[in-house]
Design a protein around this nucleic acid. Structure first.
Lengths: 378, 378
DNA sequence: CCCCGGTCTTGCATCGTTGCAAACGATCAC
DNA sequence: GTGATCGTTTGCAACGATGCAAGACCGGGG
């Protein structure tokens, strides 16, 4: 794709003043819809000051006389000046962008996370570049390697598959914060909920509701999965549930389809039916609920269900889904804070070391009908 | 936020060779994690060629001897060169980014649309910048005014609230394609499904299923809404449904919550109950289904439900939702095509005019349980 | 009357890349 | 052998902004 409208205008200007390249008085073409790009130089000439002074006004430099400032401002408005981010970025080394990489933007949890990040960033005047890695660890590795540097001042990476071993313990040379609940080693700063605690809370809630044979829907092949499995174990153990009633059903990925398939298989099997399902995320739970519904199993009477994520959809399932709600806004804000810390760190002076390890953010249990196995003891 | 690691490195270099600024042999600092930025100049020196030749190799220029190309490539790899997109963009006028602006990224439809766009763009080597306008018409107007130009080669805008009157008939001076189903006038290129046809198809399907009193859930205060209303009208009229059985229930926005509230109100009212609900989008339908479920109204036996969007969630509602599925990949591809057409258009030569008006993309009706009011006639 | 400290303004070089067009060398036809 | 041609490589300037440091200007104290 060529930016024809822009380069063509440039070409015209260069034709006007061949060689010198100093084409100064830049014609504004008619009053048609097409508006020539206005540079600081144009504003400077219009206001009768130097380019540098215009820059000073635009960037809010203190020592500019009110008179000058106002005159420049008027020219700025009149010509409709807009900063060229590319030039600014090239010269100053800062772009005003951060990159956010998530596995699947279409997955509700990541969409909601992305929205939270975008809004938090907008409040700070930062624009977000969204990448969708498709859960490809190759892509994730490339990003960790700095593939987005120089176009972004910092990177938020929500890795999915990336094995910790692949990353090594190298600290990248650009601001980076791991997002969500996946960890690739504790040498990197990371923001998210405490997965063990979250899972334990959800499972303990099911136990509270009288469940004694609780199936966990998930898999411990990722750091994230391991932690949620651990939370499940802790809660089961604390509740003194007999080992024979523990069951972790592995699923390939955490989608509605897998949740549906897993539960369907479970129901068709010859093992005893569970009275509780703890899904590692809401998408799995949504699939599970559908499968239970299709098989005529009543929720929560026969089986109680709880999960983690509390996506918006959770309030509208049949029945509404009990879930652990991470504070996405808190995650976004904290992650941006950590990016700033890293960006402001002066590597020369040694400065503060890069913060590392999990920065836990709050979560809460949102109880809805799906887990009300027995009426609350009131 | 300051990009400290980068600017500090720069400062150091400048200290080394004061005045000249030509610091050539750039030291690679230790073997620590910090890696100095490698420029074309560094590669050129390493390979013993000119900077321009490196540029030629990198950009795939044809007339480079195999020998030279290979030598440069080796240096490129060895030094780990990565292009500075800012400099490239500044010089060439093209950034390789496009901007995508949607109202709410957390709404499943927009998330799925965004994912489709990101993937389609990735296939073309384009990176996507996502903005979330929050449905603010002020933001949308700013974007139409060119607020994202110069950082993006083109803009895809999925406007929500923007009234056509505010836009005027001016053709923007940058590549722009309106996305989704909202129109702000037919002077702008636009990609999406034919809303009238889509709505008519959905409603006709409900009629087919034996529905005679069909409520439309939506509002005609947007172009989009007007068109879906029109489709509803056409289908009702074609089916010769008596006027008294037509009803459009207005909703403030197209969310699950509004759909829920609207149906609840409807059920509490004293009017006759409908036997069919046509929701303007899936989110409304999801809310509607939940409200019907909560009130003990059976779907599809008592009321059949159909909607537009076919978000992933639709296959997992209770019961699964019949919906019109737009081809998101086709929308994304076509939109990118149209951006390219505009970008390549030579305004000097007059070129082809900017394509304008709706570029309709295919859709299909996905029938699920929610609309099976009576068993198919077979 | 001049020097000094401060405020306000400016010129120059520079960020890393590509467009342009010229230079270069080798090959080829005559 | 000489000029034309082609393929290959190069130098220079420029994209639009900011960092740096010097210059211009102003008023007050010595």
């Amino acid at each position: 794709m060529r930016a024809a409208s822009r380069s063509a205008r440039r070409a015209r200007r260069m034709r006007q003043t061949p060689g010198t390249g100093a084409g100064n008085a830049r014609e504004r073409e008619g009053k048609g819809p097409t508006v020539a790009r206005v540079r600081m130089r144009d504003v400077a000439e219009h206001a009768g000051v130097s380019v540098r002074t215009v820059s000073n006004v635009v960037s809010g430099y203190a020592h500019v006389s009110p008179t000058t400032r106002e005159r420049v401002q008027r020219s700025l408005d009149e010509l409709g000046y807009r900063m060229d981010f590319l030039a600014k970025g090239l010269r100053s080394g800062r772009t005003g962008f951060i990159a956010l990489a998530v596995p699947f933007l279409a997955e509700p949890y990541f969409a909601e996370l992305a929205q939270a990040v975008i809004h938090a960033a907008a409040r700070r005047g930062i624009t977000v570049l969204v990448e969708s890695t498709a859960g490809d660890s190759e892509v994730e590795r490339r990003i960790l390697g700095g593939g987005l540097t120089n176009v972004a001042d910092g990177v938020l990476l929500s890795a999915l598959t990336l094995p910790a071993a692949d990353v090594g313990t190298a600290v990248p040379d650009f601001p980076l914060v791991m997002l969500g609940e996946h960890s690739v080693g504790d040498h990197l700063p990371r923001v998210g909920i405490d997965n063990v605690a979250a899972a334990r809370t959800a499972v303990a809630h099911l136990v509270d509701q009288g469940c004694r044979r609780i199936v966990a829907l998930g898999r411990n092949d990722s750091e994230n999965g391991r932690q949620r499995t651990e939370g499940y174990r802790q809660a089961m153990s604390e509740a003194k549930v007999r080992r024979v009633n523990w069951l972790v059903v592995p699923v390939e990925d955490w989608t509605r389809a897998r949740g549906y398939a897993a539960v369907q298989e479970l129901l068709e099997g010859d093992g005893p039916l569970p009275d509780g399902v703890f899904a590692f995320n809401d998408a799995l739970a949504v699939g599970a609920l559908r499968a239970l519904d299709a098989s005529g199993v009543r929720v929560p009477e026969d089986v109680a269900v709880a999960a983690i994520d509390d996506i918006q959809e959770a309030a509208y399932t049949h029945p509404p889904l009990t879930s652990i709600a991470p504070d996405l806004d808190a995650i976004a804000e904290r992650a941006l804070d950590l990016l700033e810390v890293q960006a402001n760190r002066d590597p020369e002076a040694g400065g503060a070391p890069v913060p590392a390890g999990l920065e836990p953010t709050p979560f809460r249990l949102v109880v809805r009908a799906s887990s009300l196995h027995r009426p609350p003891a009131d």
